[in-house]
Computed example of a mutant assay.
Amino acid sequence: MIFRRKRKSDLGGGGFYAVDGPDNCFYDVAGESFRQDDIEAVAQAGSSFMRTTEGVVRTKILKPGDAPGGGRWREQPANTWDIVGVILWLVPEPTNEHDPNAVGVWADPTGHYRPEQSVLMGYIPRQDAARISGTLQRRTAPERIEGTIVGRHSRWGVKLDSDAMDALLQT
């Protein structure tokens, strides 16, 4: 049941989603669909790559000329997820032309934020960015946060540690 959304939660912000119960949740980054190649590159460079499988699908393979009831069964994983733990950085973007409260989520395979080499993974959802942008702008360095890159069938998403995001939203 990894990262299966049951319903949108009211845990304090637009990015929180419950996963199999209110005690197990993550914070969803916005805008990852525009950055799939970059996210995949960071995931493949990650050192904590893990593949997990949920269940098995049995498929009947029929060839031309097989008798009724013939063929053979093939088993394959039902849901295969690629999961990579990453260190991410929250960086306010007060000069962003679309939203002066925008907060970018950046990654670097080295685990350090380097403006010239880090990769933009997405953004904090607008309603929460407005709440934390000012706090982040007053700090001298970007906010470090643990996250997870999750992929399935070449589609990638970025999830942030929900406890860390909750603490940041409470400031």
Rank of each mutant, 00 (worst) to 15 (best):
Gln117Asn: 11
Trp81Asn: 00
Trp89Pro: 01
Glu97Cys: 10
Thr80Leu: 13
Val86Tyr: 07
Val91Arg: 07
Ile87Arg: 15
Gln76Ser: 10
Tyr113Phe: 11
Gly70Glu: 06
Arg72Glu: 12
Ala102Lys: 08
Arg72Ala: 00
Glu97Ile: 07
Ala67Glu: 09
Val84Lys: 07
Ala78Leu: 11
Pro94Val: 01
Gly69Leu: 04
Val105Ile: 09
Trp73Leu: 10
Gly65Ser: 04
Asp66Gly: 00
Gly71Asp: 01
His98Ile: 00
Pro94Cys: 09
Asp82Tyr: 00
Ser118Met: 02
Pro109Cys: 08
Pro64His: 10
Thr80Pro: 09
Arg74Phe: 15
Leu88Glu: 08
Asp82Thr: 09
Trp73Ile: 08
Ala107His: 01
Glu93Arg: 14
Ile83Trp: 02
Trp73Lys: 11
His112Ser: 10
Gly111Lys: 07
Trp89Glu: 02
Trp106Lys: 05
Pro92Met: 04
Pro100Tyr: 09
Val105Gly: 04
Asp66Tyr: 07
Leu90Glu: 07
Ala102Phe: 08
Ile87Met: 12
Pro94Ile: 04
Pro94Leu: 03
Thr95Arg: 15
Asn101Phe: 12
Asn79Gln: 14
Asp82Ser: 02
Glu97Asp: 13
Asp82Pro: 02
Ala78Phe: 12
Pro64Thr: 05
Gly69Lys: 05
Val103Ser: 04
Tyr113Asp: 01
Gly69Val: 02
